[in-house]
Amino acid sequence: MTNYLKSKYSNISIITKYYIIILLLTIYATYKNGILLYQKELINFISILKPAFLVLLAIFIPFIISYIYYKYLKKEEYHILNDYNLVLFPLVAFALPLQINIFLYIGIILLFSIIKMAFKTNIINYYALMKLVIMFIIYLLGKYSYLTIYDLNIETNYTTLDMFLGNGIGGIATTNIALLIICYLILCITKSYKKEIPIISLVSFFIILLLSCLIFKNNIILDIKELITSEFIYGIIFISTISFYSPIESKKKIIYAILVGVLSYLFNKIINPFEGIFFAIIVTNLIIFLYEIIEKRMKNEHK
């Protein structure tokens, strides 16, 4: 309870914007991975709802865990409207392949919901880690693929414009770069959204890409097509900017964004352009954590 003057701005207004974005992305995912496939008679009617169902699960499971945690373990009031988990878990769900095994999906969300409650730390981006864990298990099971039934049935390559407008290969709702830009603009009107991170990351990614093309004499257009995926754009807009795991101070924010951009290029090249950004975010988290430890020690020595 507080009695000081407070601005009207609250977590609820931030989370509401995320819900709007989740709604937009869910509608798009249902259209792309449901209605379109149904019209082409590639799936049955019930399967139209699969993207929405996955999103609802990503809201419902963390809700149950948070509710139990606050109500029965901490014996505090649970404030559903202030719970960031309910909007951040769906954001990870959007970046997963549509063909994901539903039991694996439920299991991992359940596991990470519990881990998030048990180990409250800002060191590693749990959401990026969750995506990587899921994809790693899928890889181990030999089912690693972002292709939908439609993608498997077409014979022509996607054009760049196709990819921009959503006809690309990727997660449930991450393929439409135009829609992602709209979502970014919506988030930009949120005061607390760290809007500079995606821009700096993208610019540093481009600089590294240009430099490597100059040094190794690669075809720049091919590199851009291959490495700048909608998954990367999605990652820098939504996952790298999650406030809990990104720095506060301007200097550290810039270092973080540059590292995310540079490392994304490296991981996109070395591993693959779908998971590269998530690896980059986690490695950057660790670098920033080490940087903070060194900074603290130096300050103490200085004192």
Binding site: N3, K6, N11, I14, E77, Y84, K191, S192, K253
Partner: peptide
């Protein structure tokens, strides 16, 4: 003289607005 308002104090989200 203020009333105790109903704002619920939540955990810090490290949004950085204070900074």
């Amino acid at each position: 003289i203020n009333k105790n308002n109903n704002n619920v104090k939540m955990e810090c989200t490290r949004c950085g607005l204070c900074y």
